[in-house]
Design a protein around this nucleic acid. Structure first.
Length: 267
DNA sequence: TTTGAGCGG
């Protein structure tokens, strides 16, 4: 109830004096004022006295006049859910928004930061995302003729920075000097797993060959059962190669494992 | 049978 009550624990406790013979009770309470200093105030709860004479109602109707002042209600209160299925769908249609857009979290909020198109796709799904960085990023690093390829961000007319790895003729082969890219290349695909092989099993099987950054087992979302293949990522390409050499054709859970380099999934 | 999931604003 108290908006800025987070420091109230620093204050002295409330004091209640009385009720005296006039039936009045004195309450001394402490508060911070706007400048943050401590204040004490006293109030007389005359109104509480007055409330005692009010007629009782509801569950308290049978209580004595001088009995409990408050009751815990057992009444059920049903909350309205404006977005509950089937309640407002018709209105949404009437408003002209397609349901598919609504299900993506609201058409208005979905504005691509790369091409600035509204309601069509997220930034990560932008068809131009490999072509141009978001127009409002890298403004402190204007592209220069020697170090970058300049292309136009569609619809903006602005030149956009293209990172070296994205430029035409960039070396995308494995094991180069490009550290950020190399990690993806150390991904090993494992197939012909038994269906009760899980990620900890893969970790146990592969980590003796070197540092493993990630293991993954494909799980059927409907049945929860393994789809029989997975991926293991190694820090070092050499370790991954040794694991392939040793574990490809290895008998595991009565099945012959197939272990080979994974090629990046098409996006 | 067999090349991963879904978030995010």
């Amino acid at each position: 109830m108290d908006e800025d009550g987070d420091l109230d624990f620093l204050l002295p406790p409330e004091q209640v004096i009385g009720p005296g013979e006039n039936g009045l009770k004195t309450v001394i309470e402490y508060k911070f004022n706007d400048e943050g200093s401590k204040l004490a105030s006293a109030r007389l709860n005359k109104r509480a006295i007055e409330r005692r004479s009010w007629p009782k109602f509801g569950d308290a109707a049978n209580e004595d006049a001088g009995g409990r002042l408050t009751m815990v209600s057992t009444e059920e209160i049903l909350m309205e859910r404006p977005r509950a299925p089937g309640t407002k769908a018709d209105e949404s249609k009437a408003a002209g928004d397609s349901l598919s857009q609504l299900s993506k979290g609201g058409a208005v909020l979905m504005v691509c930061r790369t091409c600035h198109k509204k309601g069509d796709h997220w930034t990560s799904k932008c068809p131009y995302k490999d072509l141009a960085a978001p127009a409002d990023v890298f403004t402190d690093k204007p592209p220069t003729a020697e170090t970058s390829t300049v292309s136009a961000a569609p619809g903006t007319g602005k030149a956009a920075y293209v990172p070296p790895s994205m430029r035409a003729g960039a070396d995308r082969s494995a094991g180069g000097s490009d550290m950020s890219r190399r990690n993806d290349e150390n991904s090993v695909r494992v197939t012909n797993l038994s269906e009760d092989t899980r990620e900890p099993d893969l970790m146990e099987l592969f980590h003796p060959f070197g540092a493993v950054t990630r293991v993954y087992v494909a799980i059927d979302q409907k049945t929860g059962v393994s789809r029989g293949f997975g991926f293991v990522n190694f820090v070092s390409r050499e370790d991954a190669q040794r694991a392939i050499n040793k574990l490809n054709g290895y008998s595991y859970d009565n099945l012959i494992l197939k272990v080979e380099w994974a090629t990046p999934r098409p996006t």
